[in-house]
């Protein structure tokens, strides 16, 4: 436990000094601001595009458009920034050989993986929560918020998917000991999930549902029961990838 807390502190300091924490926070504040702005500007943008006499009549943007933008930004950019920022979290330990001293002095190897996962999770959770809070504040200021369905479950979707990506980054780093290995493991998993999504009967249990069906869940078009299988598969995948990271790391020479 002592070693675990010490490593958590080390991770926190490292993430701060390599600018990962400030960058993550700045980018996610930015996403929080951009999402409602885009929703508000969308009619203007379309008006500018429709110069050739085509008349586009749009209903005025609503709070739901703001959330649609939010989930789109998270899906396309937010998770990408998360993956890029933490792609080297395991690999740098191998390339710099910083773990050798600690491990030969008797630090359990699983502690390293669990501490890394914990610290990255804490950062991701705070950045994501900050982003949700900022978008909520703007949306409530500019629009009237209707009553939503399954708020907590909807917003846990991208968060849980983020955790899945973090665990895959760690697994990739342990398997290939390079930053590229981490990135490819993550990218490969996302491509695999996209391919699985083609089969309609498998869609429900595909973790990709967690980041694509948020609006349907928010408006009540999708029942909670349709969301759970994907969430459970994601949790299972996180546990499996962390578990196999620990097993592989125990057998790996550093």
């Amino acid at each position: 436990m002592k070693a675990y807390i010490a490593l958590i502190k080390k991770e926190a300091r490292e993430n701060w000094r390599t600018y990962k924490t400030p960058l993550l926070v700045a980018v996610f504040i930015l996403f929080g601001v951009i999402s409602p702005l885009f929703a508000k500007l969308m009619p203007e943008i379309l008006k500018q595009l429709a110069t050739t006499g085509v008349k586009i009549t749009l209903p005025p943007p609503t709070a739901l458009d703001s959330w649609a933008q939010f989930f789109k930004n998270m899906r396309q950019m937010g998770l990408l920034v998360l993956v890029i920022l933490f792609s080297g979290t395991v690999a740098t330990e191998f390339t710099r050989g910083t773990l050798i001293n600690l491990l030969t002095k008797g630090l359990p190897r699983r502690t390293v993986i669990l501490a890394k996962f914990t610290m990255t999770t804490v950062l991701w959770t705070s950045a994501y929560a900050l982003s949700v809070a900022i978008t909520t504040a703007y949306t409530a200021y500019y629009w009237t918020m209707p009553t939503y369905h399954h708020l907590i479950l909807t917003f846990s979707g991208p968060w849980l998917f983020g955790l899945l990506l973090i665990s895959l980054l760690i697994l990739g780093g342990i398997c290939f000991t390079t930053t590229i290995g981490s990135l490819l493991t993550c990218g490969g998993a996302v491509i695999l999930m996209t391919l699985i999504n083609i089969v309609p009967t498998w869609q429900a249990s595909n973790p990709l549902t967690l980041i694509t069906q948020n609006l349907a869940l928010l408006t009540g078009k999708l029942a909670v029961g349709d969301f759970w299988p994907a969430a459970l598969v994601a949790v299972g995948a996180i546990v499996i990838s962390l578990g196999s990271s620990i097993i592989i790391f125990d057998r790996r020479a550093i």
Partner: peptide, 14 residues
Amino acid sequence: IIGPVLYFVFGKED
């Protein structure tokens, strides 16, 4: 957004 992030991850020396 992504430019500065990429620099601090892949460009900045440790």
